[in-house]
């Protein structure tokens, strides 16, 4: 795997050390009034961005931390995130 990921605790490491945790879709929606379809969408629907997306990774073979990075899915490269969180 050519991907490298920068763990906030351990620094830049080979992608083999990490486990993918999916796109960052935000915290789960509140259960009250949630339809099965809406819940299923939250759990299983992905945006599959061709470009830069924010996603979760776990430094499984290191410190065990979950953190999010920005990755360019077309080049499989970690990239700097947007300056402002609302981008």
């Amino acid at each position: 795997m050519a991907l490298t990921i920068t763990c906030p605790i351990c620094g830049k490491r080979s992608g083999y050390e990490f486990r993918f945790g999916g796109e960052d879709k935000g915290p789960p929606p509140q259960a009250a009034g949630l339809t099965p379809a809406a819940w299923c969408d939250y759990v299983h629907r992905n945006n599959c961005v061709a470009g830069v997306q924010k996603e979760w990774w776990c430094h499984r073979q290191g410190c065990g931390t979950w953190f999010s990075i920005y990755r360019d899915t077309t080049k499989n490269l970690e990239v700097a995130g947007p300056q402002s969180e609302d981008v």
Binding site: G21, P27, W66
Partner: peptide
């Protein structure tokens, strides 16, 4: 399990 618990409390 450690990973699972940390994942589901990540926010």
């Amino acid at each position: 399990t450690s990973e699972w618990i940390r994942y589901h409390t990540r926010y």
